[in-house]
């Protein structure tokens, strides 16, 4: 005998309440609403056999029941899903304090990081970054910078000489500063010029906590109309404030380098004690940064730049000393010992 709609409804809803997992739910759906074997499908298929007068009423009831059962089925499915999520979370809580899964940590060398910061600061002021050879000719390293052979200022740069095949090699050298690039750039470019030259430099020097024979230097050169010592001061101040904070101050003291006139030694007030004196600054309140000055007019002239019209400033700074300040590194030699226990802190 064919199912009656009310009977089927009672039975199906009762069975649905019993379905406690996805499999039971699927079985229920096939059994009552399945397209081939479904009981309600059977009822709808049986409509044709019914007398015309019953057909309409039973058809309407069966269709209503189909909608009701589909809705009930969706509701039950959602209830089961929610229950499953709740159970999963309850059973599998994590200890949020455990360490993360390890990932290889790569770092740039602290000297590279310091250099990047400084170069970014210069770049924001319109400076181009230029490099030059590390093995230089005496001409570029000294001669063209107004330091001829037998000049007493040569004592300021203890030089590593490279064997050039002569008995007393004096033509090739490990550059003692990145200043030679000044000359190389001025040979090729007319003002306005704004360049910074980072790179390795070498000195024949005994090493200690604040000296290394290999160092990273940044040379700065600007040549244009209207540049003065005040622009040198403002530019270096801007860069140091970017690196060490906007309250930093810059101090120029008179000094001598053959390629500048006037010449200056540049210092920054100690960021650690703000100038009152501490161990970082050896009680002086100041941290020395390097030499600077106005490009000597004879150099401009020799480069074919009219020194009456154009002026320029230049500065040379040691990066390691700044990196020591920036990261609180007590000994310059640590940088090139490459101990990962040190490098990976940065």
């Amino acid at each position: 005998m064919a199912d009656t709609v009310p009977h089927l409804r009672t039975e199906a809803l009762a069975a649905l309440a019993e379905a406690a997992d996805d499999a039971a739910l699927a079985t229920w759906h096939v059994r009552y609403l399945g397209r081939k074997e479904g009981r309600l499908t059977g009822v709808l298929r049986g409509l044709a056999q019914l007398p015309v007068e019953e057909r309409r009423a039973v058809g309407a009831a069966a269709n209503a029941l189909k909608a009701e059962l589909e809705a009930a089925y969706e509701e039950q499915r959602e209830a089961l899903r929610r229950m499953a999520v709740r159970q999963a979370l309850e059973g599998g809580s994590v200890d949020v304090t455990l360490p993360p899964r390890p990932r290889a940590r790569g770092r740039l060398h602290p000297v590279t990081q310091t250099l990047r910061q400084m170069l970014d600061a210069f770049r924001s002021m319109g400076f181009s970054i230029v490099e030059g050879p590390e093995v230089e000719l005496d001409y570029y390293n000294f001669e063209a910078l107004r330091i001829p052979a037998d000049h007493p200022a040569r004592d300021m740069w203890d030089t590593l000489w490279v064997d050039d095949g002569t008995p007393r090699p004096r033509s090739l050298l490990m550059r003692t500063h990145t200043s030679p690039a000044q000359i190389r750039v001025m040979e090729q470019h007319q003002p306005p010029i704004r360049i910074v030259v980072p790179g390795r430099a070498y000195r024949h020097e005994a090493t200690d906590t604040t000296h290394e024979w290999m160092m990273t230097q940044v040379e700065v050169l600007a040549v244009d109309e209207g540049l003065t010592l005040a622009h040198l001061k403002g530019t270096l101040l801007g860069v140091m404030q970017r690196l060490f904070g906007s309250e930093r101050r810059i101090r120029l003291q008179c000094s001598y380098f053959p390629f500048v006139e006037p010449g200056a030694e540049v210092a920054m007030d100690c960021f650690n004690c703000a100038g009152t004196g501490c161990a970082t600054c050896h009680q002086s309140g100041w941290i020395e940064m390097g030499g600077a000055g106005m490009v000597h007019p004879e150099i401009l002239e020799r480069m074919g730049i009219d020194p009456a019209r154009y002026t320029g400033f230049a500065a040379g700074m040691g990066l390691e000393r700044l990196a020591m300040q920036l990261y609180g590194v007590p000994d310059m030699r640590f940088f090139y010992q490459n101990d990962l226990r040190m490098l990976q802190q940065f």
Binding site: S128, V130, D224, R251
Partner: peptide, 18 residues
């Protein structure tokens, strides 16, 4: 005294990058 020299900002045209 070099401390009497003020700090001035660069002005003028920025050279073409190299």
């Amino acid at each position: 005294g070099y401390d009497q020299i003020p700090a001035a900002q660069l002005a003028g045209s920025v050279p073409a990058p190299i």
